[in-house]
Simulated scan of single mutants.
Amino acid sequence: MSEETVPLETQFSLTVIALMKGIVSRQDDEKSWNKLVRQQAQIRDYVEKIGLDLRLDEAEGFAWLAQRSVQEGEIPLPRLVSRFRLSYATSLLLALLRGRLAEQDAQGGDTRLVLTLEEIQEMMAVFLPATGNQARRRDQVAAQVAKAEDLGFLRRLGGSQAWEVRRLLGLFIDAQWLGEFDQRLAEYRQNLSSEESEEEQG
């Protein structure tokens, strides 16, 4: 069945289901993205009834669903979008990637940021406890890269050991998040330095 013969109601349902599954990206599927943009008013009305908001950034080409804030006098609905708490290592990786995106934007030029596993490992090394087991460190960083990929913030380039940092990251991590994490990071580095000093003295 061609796209032209698919009923509009079915096209609408397929678009909503795609959003329910996760992030919809123009880069991943331009046809689905165009349908979403055309149907955004109807989608907003529909998901609002089940306690969700449609977040759509046409400039960057990303759309996703977020839990809608409960207004005064409304009866709270069960959450459909789960909250998740990021580990320190995952938060660190996302903050560093967000910083690299900001640096690249300031410099201009290529809008794509591509990093290898080795480059990501070098970025994170200064913020992680020292270890003589480089293979274990590489596995730890690779696990965080896989987590960021699952969250939709990294895209692996084929079967290579290189990933594109998706600009979606900048929409989720704002200045306030970075500021709060920078404070946690400073405290962590201070504690880490104290522990290393104690080990040297011991």
Rank of each mutant, 00 (worst) to 15 (best):
residue 3 E to Y: 06
residue 4 E to V: 13
residue 8 L to P: 06
residue 11 Q to F: 07
residue 12 F to C: 10
residue 14 L to Y: 10
residue 18 A to E: 14
residue 26 R to W: 03
residue 28 D to E: 15
residue 30 E to M: 12
residue 31 K to A: 15
residue 37 V to F: 04
residue 38 R to L: 13
residue 39 Q to K: 09
residue 42 Q to Y: 10
residue 49 K to G: 09
residue 54 L to I: 01
residue 54 L to R: 06
residue 68 R to I: 10
residue 68 R to T: 09
residue 71 Q to R: 13
residue 74 E to R: 02
residue 74 E to T: 06
residue 76 P to K: 00
residue 82 S to H: 09
residue 82 S to R: 14
residue 83 R to C: 00
residue 83 R to L: 09
residue 85 R to I: 11
residue 88 Y to L: 01
residue 90 T to E: 04
residue 95 A to C: 11
residue 98 R to I: 03
residue 100 R to T: 03
residue 101 L to R: 08
residue 104 Q to G: 10
residue 117 L to E: 13
residue 121 Q to K: 07
residue 125 A to H: 14
residue 126 V to L: 09
residue 130 A to M: 15
residue 135 A to S: 15
residue 140 Q to I: 08
residue 141 V to T: 13
residue 147 K to S: 06
residue 148 A to M: 07
residue 150 D to E: 15
residue 150 D to Q: 14
residue 156 R to E: 07
residue 161 Q to H: 09
residue 162 A to M: 11
residue 165 V to Q: 05
residue 170 G to K: 01
residue 170 G to H: 03
residue 173 I to C: 02
residue 178 L to A: 15
residue 178 L to C: 10
residue 181 F to N: 02
residue 181 F to T: 03
residue 182 D to C: 06
residue 184 R to W: 07
residue 185 L to E: 02
residue 187 E to D: 14
residue 191 N to S: 13
residue 193 S to D: 15
residue 197 S to R: 13
residue 202 G to T: 07
